Amino acid sequence: MAEDYPADGARPRRRGRKLLIGLFVLLLVVAGLLVVADRVAVGVAEREIAKRVSQEVSKQGAQAAEPDVKVFGTPFLTQVLDGRYQRITINLRDVQAPVEGDVVRLSVLDVDARNVRASLDTLRTGQGDIVADTVNGTGTISYDSLAALLKRPGLTLGEQNGKLAVTGPADILGQKITISGTADVTVADNGAVALRFNDLDAAGLPNLPMARGLLNNFAKSISIDVPLPELPFQLAVREVRPLPEGLAVTADAKNVPINSVS
């Protein structure tokens, strides 16, 4: 004998299924809103940090294009509440910094800050400091601005087989000649770029000991420590390398205020 089921016996199951679907859709909507809110918060933080970085660069008497700031780590909002950020990168372009009456140009300065501390109140009000445990920077100094610091008109610098190459006019025993050669490049104890021209030659140089001695003296006269401008974020230069596009500078710092404007 077949059992009798209520005419609407399947409705409770349908209602339950509809309820589960509704909850699932609601969760998706809430999750989507949270993702949107998270990305909006990232944008706000990046703009605030970029503004503060621009202020810090200006305080040091330098100029640069508007910083490009990226904040990493997800979800971002948990970092906001904690006041700590995993990683922030700051890309500066067309940096121009004064040094001894001249202007040193860095076509690019890329900064990578790790474990950055910035309270929610700092981001909200714009008051207070944004501090990074470690900051690493890489930049490229144009050869033209570096050559200008040598105070030798007509001298040009460039890269040749991984070394710093130089060419320029010289007057040896009353004869106008063009010198060429390479230099060793290191970081001096005072943070300046040490240029040591140990291998110079000149076409047409008289084959005389005196001429060779004068050429060696010329090499010594341009073998100097070239001061670099004060880099943003208290970065200290650790390494310099000649590249085709310019002199590559590597710098770092610890416990650094990304901004000091209060």
Score class of each variant (00 low, 15 high):
F197C: 04
E66M: 04
R39G: 04
I222F: 02
F72L: 11
A41S: 13
D133C: 06
D144P: 00
I130A: 03
S54Y: 02
R124N: 06
L150H: 03
V135F: 10
K176F: 01
G73Q: 07
Q60C: 01
N259E: 01
R15K: 10
N198R: 08
K163P: 00
L92H: 11
A62Q: 12
Q96M: 09
V166I: 13
Y85S: 06
P227D: 07
R152E: 13
D144I: 02
A248Q: 14
L28C: 14
A253H: 02
N198V: 05
A148G: 08
L123F: 15
E46N: 02
P98I: 05
G204K: 12
A202T: 03
N115P: 00
L149R: 14
F197H: 07
V185F: 01
V103A: 12
G158V: 03
D252V: 06
I258K: 04
A183H: 03
Y85P: 05
I90Y: 07
V80G: 03
T74D: 10
L215P: 04
A62D: 09
E100P: 05
L247I: 05
A248H: 07
R241Y: 00
E239S: 07
L23P: 08
Y5S: 09
G162W: 00
V240D: 05
V29G: 11
P244D: 12
L173D: 11
K18Y: 12
T167E: 08
G213N: 14
A203K: 13
D4W: 09
V249T: 11
A2S: 15
A97W: 10
D121Q: 10
Q55L: 13
I130S: 04
G213T: 13
Q79I: 11
F197K: 01
T78R: 13
L205H: 12
Q175L: 15
E245Y: 00
K59A: 12
V193S: 05
S180T: 02
V35F: 14
R152L: 05
R84E: 15
